[in-house]
Design a protein around this nucleic acid. Structure first.
Lengths: 234, 234
DNA sequence: AAAATATATTGCGTATACAAATTGTATAAC
DNA sequence: GTTATACAATTTGTATACGCAATATATTTT
């Protein structure tokens, strides 16, 4: 195994571990440990760190170890603002520009996603879903939109992993909804139907947003008015 | 002068040289020459390269020297698609979130821009204008929109330098228009008027777009129909 | 006992040395 | 004359070593 392969292995490992929150937001990485684990010296390891910093996976601070990018309240707010706009634009452009080879690639990714829903855990499902959307980004092929889109995908994956983790029960139906939407997205792209692609982007976003909101904002208890006294004693 | 200062000096130098097209798109950088010029060894110089690659200034290819990011026909098309959307979103959010300190900073940048219009050349003007818009990006403060916005600013500066360069004559009035729009943008942000900020973003974009289009598409000659024979005799 | 300063230890940043790969050139064969 | 191959030179990538800065700990002083 060449040094280059070991370097890309490290890159892929960190990317996956961060997306699936196996490495939690804010986690401090150990440079020398990773050197030993992947059989690399510090120089190439630090280059990988810098690349991941540029892509938004890591946060590099001076004279301090690299840290997994934080996922704060503020970033969540930013996420909700930016995501619908960018997702819509990306799918619209994907429908406009997708090549046959890319469509095949997207179908493959959707097949893998469906397979992961059958017999894999949350981490694998997240990665498969992430891959699907990464390909739509490649299809859109817009140099300027892509960096923002990719950052959104990183945190979308991580938000998903942190929030929907526990309730795997009622997740199932929502996930098959998501899978059905993926199929519709593929169809719209293949037909070159930009308007439909944009609509589906909105639908897909709404599904995801509802899921997230369920766990951020606790559902109000469905209780008749007046059951609780206004001034709660003690 | 410490090594760190020399490193940031190199970073700033390359950033400015690329924005002003003193280093043209596609230009191959000489690693060792820059090491000598800035008194650094190869390691920190290569780190600067990687940072600039992540930000979209440079293009790093394997086993090949770093190259100034290309500015192709395709990227120009992408630029026209993405810019209005992102610019609008950024100014809208800037109006929503700007802090008093940031507004002061923006006023300072506008003052510097106006000064550059008086007694500086195209490169200084481009840098001053770039700085103004960078601050609006900071004001918006959205983690996800910022990377795309910054990439747009890079190429907006470079497109400006390549196209409006020669005709400094008729440029003057357009530049004072741009300066007036900057003032209006500051006012809208200070008032927290999101709608007006978004409208001004559109106006500012249209002004810039018209400028660019004038040089990309040669203006049709205003000649009566039939002046040219259909089949041109070679 | 608490606080402050000195000292030790960890680890980040830079430099240099070495290895691998790519490119240019020269020579030979077709 | 053109093309292909081999070899040399330049350049890129990786490894190791050193110096400095930041933080933690211990000892001293108030």
């Amino acid at each position: 195994m060449s040094a280059r392969d070991r370097k890309t292995a490290l890159f892929d490992h960190l990317k996956r571990a961060i997306l699936t929150t196996a490495l939690r937001p804010g986690y401090d990485l150990d440079e020398v440990a990773l050197c030993a684990e992947f059989g690399l010296s510090r120089t190439p390891v630090r280059e990988v760190f810098r690349d991941l910093d540029g892509l938004g996976y890591l946060d590099l601070r001076d004279n301090r170890g690299p840290r997994v990018a934080e996922l704060s309240h503020t970033t969540l707010r930013d996420f909700f603002l930016a995501a619908p706009m960018i997702y819509g634009a990306i799918l619209r452009l994907a429908a406009r520009n997708a090549t046959p080879a890319q469509i095949d690639s997207l179908k493959g990714a959707q097949e893998a996603f469906r397979a992961s829903l059958r017999d894999k855990g949350p981490a694998e499902r997240t990665l498969a879903n992430n891959r699907f959307h990464e390909i739509t980004g490649e299809m859109a092929g817009n140099t300027y939109l892509l960096p923002s889109f990719q950052r959104l995908l990183i945190d979308h994956a991580r938000i998903g992993m942190t929030f929907y983790q526990p309730q795997t029960n009622e997740m199932a139906s929502k996930l098959s909804d998501a899978s059905a939407q993926h199929d519709a997205i593929i169809a719209a792209i293949e037909a070159g139907d930009e308007g439909r692609a944009a609509t589906l982007a909105e639908d897909h976003w709404n599904l995801s947003r509802n899921q997230i909101e369920l766990f951020v904002m606790p559902t109000a208890l469905d209780v008749p008015m007046g059951s609780f006294s206004r001034s709660s004693p003690a």
